[in-house]
Design a binder for these strands. Structure first.
Lengths: 108, 108
DNA sequence: AAAATACGCAACCAAAAAGTTGCTTATTCG
DNA sequence: CGAATAAGCAACTTTTTGGTTGCGTATTTT
């Protein structure tokens, strides 16, 4: 389909998914599908779809317990986004000047 | 339409747009629409569309000179993404343990 | 002035994404 | 056991996205 990093970027590009992800991170325990969807206007099935794309991005994993499914959240994949950002970080401030610095350091 | 940060996330979620953005950042001078689209398989009009969404995310701005339009690139908006990431950075490593630390620091 | 270049804009198209409804299955509770 | 709960799956609709073609216009170039 598409590469890992794009899946990751797309997963967090949706506001609902960012909200779900955030809810999972700050929750004091793992949450079930229903527990999550109760926090949103959307139908459970809609939430399930979002969770699936979060899962495919590696940001959550699912664990069945009885009739319920609990979501484990994983923040580690975000390090890839951070890595991507890192490169451009050197250009914050005045782009052109910093670009000069970057090129100089490459040539030395 | 949608909030600023979502526009930004969506802008960088597309691989072609990330490529355009990257090309602009590492270019030694500003590039025109044609100069950019020559580097891609896609039609000029397709590229123009992508540039427009980059523009709406604040990542580029356009400047007309004669019959050409040059793209100025801006990395600063990415700081917003970095800010978003920062919060989750404390959970990298072992999520649950770090979450404990986070909650503890809130209560002290 | 004619030809070529750089571009915008609108219409269109296909595929993907976002979200819904309806139905089935499995588990738990009384 | 029967009712209620948790959830999966498939089909379907709507909207968004990614990309194209076609055409008009302004600016250069020759």
């Amino acid at each position: 389909m598409q590469d890992k990093i794009t899946k990751l970027f797309k997963a967090i590009a949706d506001p609902t998914r960012r909200d779900i992800f955030h809810a999972l991170v700050i929750a004091s325990s793992t949450l079930s599908i229903s527990q999550i969807s109760n926090q949103f206007e959307m139908t459970r099935q809609g939430i399930t779809k979002h969770i699936k794309t979060l899962e495919e991005a590696g940001l959550v994993s699912l664990e069945s317990k009885g009739r319920e499914r609990f979501c484990n959240v994983h923040t580690q994949p975000l390090q890839e986004v951070n890595k991507w950002l890192k490169f451009y970080e050197q250009f914050w401030g005045d782009s052109m000047q910093d670009l000069g610095n970057y090129l100089d350091s490459k040539n030395s």
